[in-house]
Design a protein around this nucleic acid. Structure first.
Lengths: 330, 330
DNA sequence: TCAAAAGTGTTATCCTTACACCCATGT
DNA sequence: ACATGGGTGTAAGGATAACACTTTTGA
């Protein structure tokens, strides 16, 4: 039997996959490549074990090289290594090489100009239409998702009850509350039920079949991405939505100066929820995270709004929470 | 210039490192190897890219092989890849091979019998004496840690103010509240300040020096562990302390039947805090996570306590929170 | 009868949520 | 004047944290 240690050294490669997020008042964006003609991909690159002292520095270096701007805030998300969901290798004679990818979340304050032609900012709800509840419950849940999931649940009588409960809790059916943080649970449920194009793709690849084109309607089940990139994006959405509640990371997405309404709408676009204006403001100023400047912005159609800035000093003053997102009903 | 992709495939190996936690009413334990004679290590093993379909299954397999029991709850913690903090390789002629380790947290309901002689359960506060606040603020903070950290802060006038604020917030000095979840921040602060034996070890290794033995007093700065294993353990402590508040993972550490006092003391041992008895109980029964059995346990020295069990069904009923740990003052 | 641990009732306080309302500007 | 968006006061409800207290056993 071969020594697994030496074996492990030879047939693995580590990729770094970046979810680079920007947001404006209308929607959050994710940086993708190759979305015009074929499937969109997250930017990814190899980890250079010789040149880079840490994984994070490696990521910063090649994102900078590839896109021409330096990302600021970065955090590690998760390390993905499932066989059959990893990237199919660009046929380079590498038989059974295994690809492990370390996913990172990066936040940038604005949609910087991109240096490469095939890189573009993509609205993330195009890949997750069921995640945007700002206009109330999205129609695709009741229209296409729920019926398809109920069908899947009833396919296996033994697991039926557990599956139904997962569906209810994930997608807020039968009076269960919506939890915007469970974006990954929802994507994994859809994948497991075979309702994403990626699931069909992976199954076809495992059985050596030719994958069908355009499996599920993108209007309801979201535009697919290459390999497991939509899973990584779902992980990033879940993490970011949770984190803005207890760390002031939202200010990594805002410009230096903003009005409180602009800030609120950025939070709303990320969390996919509508917030109560006054409560948002009161909670915010109890934190001491922002500071009014006494300057006002000329607005179209309304009273001018005061400009605020994020008090970076506050990071050092207290445990430093985030902006609260109350739980909505039904 | 060599293609970094092929380069990456050759000089990396992936290890899986497990933080296997058990707990009783007195203290939490972590499974270590080789702690008797030399430095304690967390169990770690290589990821087998050929045999194992997922990282997690790989971990389960070799923990089972090495210790003889099957771990239940597992979650991924973080992927560590810093040069200079990774494991020094067992001299096997592998020149510049880079070691990346994926840390996992595993929870087991009791300290199962171990199959190997050099594996043992170690009380985790031996490695983190400053993390146990059950008897009030630990003496080592005021006695040894705070003075050494203040000294370090004043070594660099430019960073002095920021360092002092980090120290205050991490170790609850000058009236700042203690936050039991920031175990990793505290360890990283001590490491950065050069106050852990591991920091001295890493520095010596980078400069090709012979590391000094027994750098810092273990009574105050905690018993060191091999390579970056204490950092991984700190990550696990932080994650577990945060997670018991919003997911019912504490029941992965308890026996099937328990009294409410036993449960409370397990929570206390993990979080390192004393809890208010009645509030603990009220919060618990609002969740519906546990169910009294009407049976009572014969106790020594007191009224017999009712036995409870965890209602696993409740996982399917609702979003399923955890057990709350109120923030202590000062 | 006393110590020790189990278990309960009640209250003050704070935080969240929501409603209703006023203010300043452009057209 | 009035539409539009900015900005504020206050009250209802619920959750938290703390108090004091009773109950049941073993020594």
């Amino acid at each position: 039997m071969a020594d697994p240690a030496s074996l492990a050294g030879d047939r693995i490669r580590i990729g770094l996959t970046a979810v680079v997020v920007a947001a404006d008042e209308a929607t959050p964006y994710v940086l993708v490549t190759g979305g015009a003609d074929g499937l969109a991909s997250l930017p990814f690159g190899p980890f250079d074990p010789v040149g880079d002292p840490t994984l994070e520095l490696s990521l910063r270096r090649w994102v900078s090289e590839q896109t021409g701007f330096d990302i600021g805030y970065v955090e590690q998300l998760y390390t993905f290594g499932d066989r059959g969901r990893d990237a199919p290798l660009p046929a380079a004679g590498q038989g059974g090489m295994r690809s492990i990818s370390v996913g990172y979340l990066a936040l940038t304050p604005e949609r910087s100009d991109l240096q490469r032609d095939d890189a573009r900012w993509r609205e993330w709800y195009r890949h997750f239409p069921w995640e945007d509840w700002r206009g109330g419950r999205p129609a695709c849940i009741g229209g296409a998702i729920a019926p398809a999931l109920w069908q899947w649940a009833s396919n296996d009588p033994a697991k039926q009850e557990a599956r139904r409960m997962r569906i209810r809790l994930s997608f807020a059916l039968d009076g269960a509350p919506w939890n915007e943080e469970r974006a990954l649970d929802r994507y994994e449920l859809l994948y497991e039920a075979g309702l994403t194009a990626e699931a069909a793709q992976d199954k076809a690849r495992q059985h050596g079949l030719c994958p069908r084109e355009a499996f599920a309607q993108p209007e309801a089940f979201g535009a697919p991405m290459a390999s497991d990139h939509r899973r990584i994006l779902a992980t990033a959405i879940a993490r970011l939505r949770a984190k803005i509640k207890y760390r002031p990371v939202i200010f990594e997405l805002t410009p230096d100066l903003f009005t409180l309404s602009q800030l609120q709408r950025v939070v709303e676009s990320v969390s996919g929820l509508e917030l109560h204006k006054q409560n948002f403001r009161r909670l915010l100023d109890r934190t001491g995270l922002v500071e009014g400047l006494g300057r006002f912005e000329a607005r179209t159609g309304g009273r001018p709004a005061e400009l605020f800035r994020f008090r970076r000093e506050s990071l050092l003053e207290r445990p430093a929470g985030g902006v609260n997102v109350p739980a909505p009903r039904g």
